[in-house]
Nucleic acid binder design. Structure first.
Lengths: 237, 237
DNA sequence: GCCCCTTTTTGGTATGTACCAATTGGTGGG
DNA sequence: CCCACCAATTGGTACATACCAAAAAGGGGC
């Protein structure tokens, strides 16, 4: 049936079957141990593990071994439901850690996306969000101070969607979201407890008010194995 | 500034800069040649090339070397615009090859998604779509014969969205789309002219009529470096 | 029982070598 | 000029080995 002429394919399928049949949970044996089990060189084993990682079956915590992936989080970037809301609804224990908050001038990418000139002030926050103790996404949110006066005076560790709705009366907004495959490099990789060059999914979001004026620019760097993007809509022709 | 203590990081950054500054176009030199250039072992070089591949900067055609990636296709899976339409609008030359068309019973996954019993007949097609001569996505479309009578009698190599609209009067439909990172295995990898275990993005789509009855189940396997998913919407709170 | 220090294990990086099969490029014959 | 055949190149697979630094495990003292 399947392609078993190569050693790494054999190892890959053997381990993946172990995981799917749930004979393997939590952490995997050490690499040298697995080499002995399957009688392959360590580089061959690591090739197999790398593919299992790409499949989203296993992941590695920086320098401390391989682990079976928990189930994926379902996430709809077009919805304004909060992280707390959709994670708990799926039975996860969410947590958020604010890494940094500052006022700064926009970089080129943001200036272009928000159509700002380079001197406009932005309130920028960086935070790491985890489910069940595992860091899954690094978020970088940027708010235009011009369009959201005194936004930096509020507590941005609370729900920002509620703040926008109640304080700034943003009831009708335009979302412009992109999703693409990416690589996670330091220092973002470190915040996600993974390695420089790990695989990720990058979600960017431009939020505009009802007149089309952009006031928010977000970048989300997800562990590639942590989420499944979900999107429901009614279409008319 | 950046992390340059390791050889593979050095090679990665050197080649990526070459590409970004456009000193490198089309195909890369052979691996052994690059080893000599950067004075590293082949496995180290291949580690660097692998990460550049994950970044979407380079790709490999099955056994015939490394190439600089063309620009990404922008794609909105929530829109009913045709492949022909959105690729040409972005300046690409699209083409589609029908690989297989058959009537069959649903597999477990499809039966569950469409809420069909295992004896219902499905019309299933498999096709490969390319832009500028490069295969970018393998599509597997499945239509319920029960809900779309005689769908297999039509020419499914033409636009199916027009067929649904004009012949089956599906003007109001519900889309249920998911996107996730995946691995491309044979035989799909071969259709995309890539290798077993290559990185991909999997898009699944369930289409329902206005009463919520599912009549179509699609799976799209994209080269991870070929697309950027784009999604615009107006939201109200 | 808890904490600190040492030892061992282990993942991350790196090299060199080897063989095979597919592709490519070149050569010669029709 | 084209096609068929052959040789050289090249990517894909595989192994053995080595070293380092971080993490985990173990042991000893309080």
């Amino acid at each position: 049936m399947s392609n078993v002429c190569f050693a790494y394919v054999h190892v890959r399928e053997a381990i993946s079957q172990q995981i799917i049949e749930q004979h393997l949970t939590g952490s995997l044996p050490s690499e040298r141990e697995l080499c002995a089990t399957y009688d392959v060189a360590r580089s061959t084993l690591r090739q197999a593990l790398g593919q299992l990682e790409h499949m989203g079956l296993i992941y590695r915590k920086n320098r401390s071994g391989w682990f079976v992936c928990p189930r994926k989080l379902k996430y709809d970037p077009m919805q304004h439901t909060s992280f707390l809301q959709y994670t708990t609804a799926q039975g996860f224990q969410p947590s958020t850690k604010l890494v940094e908050q500052k006022k700064q001038k926009p970089c080129k990418e943001i200036a272009a996306a928000l159509e700002l000139d380079a001197r406009t002030s932005l309130t920028s926050i960086l935070r790491v969000r985890s489910v069940d103790g595992r860091a899954v996404v690094v978020e970088n949110l940027n708010f235009s101070n011009k369009h959201l006066p005194d936004i930096d005076k509020h507590d941005l560790s609370l729900s920002i969607s509620i703040l926008l709705k109640n304080t700034y009366h943003q009831h009708d907004v335009l979302y412009d979201v992109t999703v693409e495959s990416c690589c996670l490099f330091n220092p973002i990789a470190q915040l996600l407890d993974t390695y420089d060059g790990a695989l990720g999914l990058k979600v960017t979001r431009i939020v505009r008010d009802k007149d089309g004026i952009a006031f928010e620019f977000d970048r989300e760097f997800w562990r590639h194995d942590a989420l499944m993007i979900e999107n429901k809509a009614k279409l008319h022709f």
